[in-house]
Amino acid sequence: MWNEIPLKQPGRWPEGIRLPIIISVHHQSEEAAVVFGDGQVDPFDYSERQYGGRRGAWRLFEILQKHGVLGTWIICGATVEKYPQISREVKKAGHSIAGHTYEHEMMCNYPPDQELRLIQKTVAVFEDLLGERLRGWRTCFASHNTINLLLEHFDFEWDASIWNDDLPYMIEGYGKKLLEIPFSSYSDAAAAIQITNPMPPTPYGTWHSNTPEFIVRTMKAQFDALYERGAERAVLMPLTVHDFIVGRPSRSLVLDEFIAYAKQFDGVVFATHDDVRAWWLKNYSAQ
């Protein structure tokens, strides 16, 4: 069980920051491929998603490098095992890294003991292969146990799994504290045409994503709204890109063009979840 620790006054960002943008790169390769009713993995979906691990993640990495911005890489344990080189490069470049379950298990379908074992397994992969002690977590399809398990059994500093707010909030339980940094379906640069339903998984790939130009417009619209609002109060823009979708050549321009657009505005910073956590904690220490 956990409680939220409310801020007594509205939170703010450090001086000079008007709109932090967190780019989350979902690096999960073929882990979430659709499984048919007969128990077989869909070879089409598998192959399309595998592109993310083999190529797409590298293209996204290069775009971030080109613009000189850092983000958070949300990585499945099994993906690190299959494609360790890109994770090492990501770490070396200074991006933040968060765990994203082992094989993209939809945790809402797992009992707590299994969810716990899968989180432990994932944490161990990052330690063993990358020497990375995970500070952050983004689950796949949060269960009602996810936050409890993170608090009770681990020492995560932040979680970014829940879709329920505009701004971070501190939670406390099991004698520990964790900053929840929410995001939303609107932050996903796939802008999927269908709502993804975990049971059974509905298709989610380039076929089910809106057109690149639609997504660029959607991202700019969100940016404009948040930037305007940011003149008066704290705002935060989460942006999610998947390696096998936005990593495709034609779709990579969505990220490239959006970063180029946002960079022109004063007070915009591209931040990692770790940066955002450090900034937001100051609101708690100030009170």
Partner: peptide
Amino acid sequence: NVWDSEFDV
């Protein structure tokens, strides 16, 4: 657009 973008990249 998508053919053009793919080619450009």
